[in-house]
């Protein structure tokens, strides 16, 4: 037994021992360790899988399947990446495959393509940005107007619903990046490693996703304030 588990300093979440300890425990059949991993990582894996598949049920299947894949592969895991990075790559691969297969069997469902990632970012209310189409830029919004509620008060269920819906309309790659960065709180380095993309690409995807969600919140909150004139 090691004395003290080393905190995973990379990002928030439940404290797990260092990778080598976890891997050795799994190989030795330590069910508690496996259970701890399920608890710690499955929520993020479900959110990530959801970027590629049609619904929560498919995401649940994908994550189960990915965990079985983890067990099958753990003996050969060589720690060339962090364990969590490797696990996320497995879930993303499976989710992509599932997403493509589901799209083939469901007529009228369009496949998400890489092209979508390069469509101009949607930041509604931004006609000033109309002439700009560069890949790495986000449409400039009209002069932003402060949102009516103080930051701490916009926790309403409705806000969450608007965000959830907006997440659903993001291209898969943008959704995965904002999920890992802003929902799971992972570092940009880890997200680049998981998705095997460059830091610049990661930032563009995150930038577009955030701008798009800000636009959604802006439309909702500005409409709310319109109902109650402030002056």
């Amino acid at each position: 037994m090691r004395s003290m588990p080393e905190a995973d300093s990379q990002s928030p979440g439940p404290v797990l021992p260092a990778d080598d300890v976890v891997v050795e425990a799994l190989r030795c059949g330590d069910e508690d360790m496996f259970a701890a991993l399920l608890t710690a990582w499955s929520p993020g894996m479900l959110q990530v899988a959801r970027a590629y598949v049609a619904d929560e049920y498919a995401a649940e299947d994908v994550v189960q399947d990915a965990w079985v894949g983890v067990l099958r592969g753990i003996d050969k895991f060589e720690a060339r990446s962090a364990l969590r990075t490797w696990v996320y790559r497995i879930v993303i691969n499976r989710a992509k495959t599932r997403g493509v297969n589901d799209a083939r069997t469901v007529p009228m469902t369009s496949l998400a393509t890489a092209k979508e990632d390069f469509d101009p970012a949607v930041d509604p209310g931004g006609p000033l940005g109309g002439s700009r189409g560069a890949d790495d830029s986000v449409a400039l919004p009209q002069t932003p107007v402060a949102w009516p509620s103080p930051e701490g008060e916009i926790l309403a269920l409705e806000v969450h619903q608007h965000i959830e819906r907006a997440l659903g309309s993001l291209p898969a790659r943008q959704r995965v990046v904002i999920t890992l960065r802003d929902m799971q709180g992972y570092s940009s380095d880890e997200v680049c490693a998981i998705l095997e993309i460059t830091a610049a690409n990661q930032r563009v995807l995150l930038h577009r996703a955030r701008a798009s969600l800000r636009g959604t919140l802006d439309r909702y909150l500005t409409a709310q304030s319109g109902k109650e004139p402030t002056r």
Binding site: L38, T39, S42, P43, G44, L46, Q47, E60, V63, Q64, P141, P144, V145, A146, W147, E151, I154, L155, V159, H160, I163, E164, L167, I178, D182, M183, G185, R210, A211, L213, R214, L217, D218
Partner: peptide, 21 residues
């Protein structure tokens, strides 16, 4: 204002409820 709104957006995304298996 834009920068503040981006920060609020990031914070709100981080507060979305997550579910487990």
């Amino acid at each position: 204002v834009y920068l503040r709104q981006i920060r609020v957006t990031v914070a709100e995304v981080g507060r979305l409820p997550a579910r487990n298996l």
